[in-house]
Simulated scan of single mutants.
Amino acid sequence: MPEPRVPARAAEDGPWHAEAVCRRDEAGLFFAPSKEPTAARLSREEAAKRVCARCPVMVACREHALLQPEPYGVWGGLTAAERRVVLARMRRRSAELRQAPGAGSIAAAG
Rank of each mutant, 00 (worst) to 15 (best):
R54H: 10
R41F: 04
G102K: 10
V59W: 08
A103D: 08
P2E: 12
Y72T: 02
S34I: 06
C22M: 05
P15R: 11
E70C: 05
G77R: 04
A8T: 12
L78Y: 02
E46G: 08
A60E: 14
M90Q: 15
R91D: 15
L97P: 02
V6T: 11
P4C: 03
P37G: 09
V51R: 02
E3Q: 12
M58E: 09
Y72F: 14
E19V: 03
A65L: 02
R50T: 07
T79S: 12
L42R: 11
H17P: 03
G14C: 08
G28W: 04
P101Y: 07
H17N: 15
T79W: 00
L29K: 04
E12M: 06
G104V: 11
R84T: 13
P56Y: 09
A103G: 04
S105A: 15
V57K: 01
A39R: 12
R54I: 07
L66N: 06
L42Y: 05
G73F: 00
R91M: 10
V6W: 12
V59T: 13
H64I: 00
R23W: 04
P101W: 09
E12G: 08
S34Y: 08
A60M: 12
A27H: 08
A32Y: 01
L97K: 15
A40Y: 02
E19H: 12
P4N: 05
R83L: 05
C22F: 02
G73H: 01
D13N: 10
E3F: 05
Y72D: 04
A60G: 09
G102T: 10
L78W: 00
E63I: 03
E96W: 11
F30L: 03
F30W: 02
P101I: 06
E26R: 06
A109G: 12
A20L: 08
A65I: 03
S94M: 10
V85H: 13
W16A: 08
R98S: 11
E46W: 06
G76R: 02
A32K: 03
R83F: 04
R92D: 13
F31Q: 00
A27D: 14
Y72R: 07
L42P: 01
G104M: 13
A11C: 01
R5Y: 09
M1K: 09
G14T: 08
L78A: 06
R9Y: 12
I106S: 14
L78P: 01
D13M: 07
P69E: 09
V51W: 01
R83Q: 07
R84M: 13
G102L: 10
C52V: 03
A53S: 14
T38D: 13
S43Q: 12
E3I: 09
V51L: 04
E70F: 05
C22Q: 02
A108C: 06
A108D: 10
T79L: 03
W75P: 00
P33R: 14
A8N: 08
K35F: 13
F30D: 00
P37H: 09
L97N: 13
A48R: 00
A65F: 00
E70A: 12
V6A: 06
E46N: 12
